[in-house]
Amino acid sequence: MIEAQNANKKTSYREVISKLPITIILWVVILVLFSLLTDKFMTVSNMMNIIVQVSSGVGIVALASFLAICSTGVDLSLGGTVAAAGMVAGKVLIWDLPVLNAIRDSNPVLLIIIAIVAALIMGLIIGAINGLILSKTKIPAFIITLAMMRVGETLARVIGSGTSIRVKDDMFKFIGGGSLLNVTINERSIGILPISMLILIPLYIIFQILMKHTRFGTYIYAIGGNNEAAVLSGINVDRTRFLVFLINGFLAAIAGVVLASRLASSIASTGLGMEFDGIAAAVVGGAALEGGKSTPLHTLVGAFMIGALRNGLNLIGMQNSIQMITIGLVMAAIVAIDALRSEEK
């Protein structure tokens, strides 16, 4: 009897472990490993560094990638949208138009708001075009968003009439680089409530609720799980897909503004490869490319895992080339383990 109970306990214990996403296990491993390898890793300033890097970069894009992947379709236009939206914001801030000059002199906050709104509209337009085409035809998201990635990058270059715009506005820089609360550790001031994090975390919470507790989220999971079944059960698939890509454009635009603000400049090439980083984060977080899997919170863990890995590899002085290899291997390994595990079931 007791033995049987013990066996039961053991299996349930093993079940808990096997149910833990591999990402969380790996995350802990990475944290422990790097704190053993270098004492610069587990410091408050470095942790905040990672958080700011992720929040103002791949974090928001990863959420958008997750939404696209979950409703079956990658969104490769995110990087281009980030660049285009960031450039729009930068352009509005420095544009030499009489109207804007007047606003710049009288009410700088209003100018920043205009810049942000303009950037968001840019993102919404790109997202709407994606969504319109992808909901009205059977064209795979891959090819349309790939083309839109080029369009977005071109827009960024044309709007910036060059490769970059420097932004000098301190208030705008505060969005991506500022912090609400600073503490002084070892005579260095460290922001422990970065604005970028305060943008990122609520976004993830909102989408976690949206995905798990609203009809919209249920529809997305249903479409990703089985498109045919979703159509037959009366879900408006076209509308949902349109909304997903519209939201993606919006999210990418937010990322563009935050990134331009942290870098204090809008750079046309800034989004290059960001869509792939976002996909990597979403997939590492457990999103299956066939759709219908994972949650925003898992994606967040994936984004921070890749962020922590990059940061740790930098700190131990690993060359960039070896870093690429390592991250490639880790990504393949995580997805392979997931694939093999689901095969066992």
């Binding site: 490319l289 393949a332 997805v335 694939a339």
Partner: peptide, 12 residues
């Protein structure tokens, strides 16, 4: 291994 082609070749 059963990796999605997108991921396998992107990692590669």
């Amino acid at each position: 291994v059963g990796l999605p082609a997108f991921i396998a070749t992107f990692a590669m």
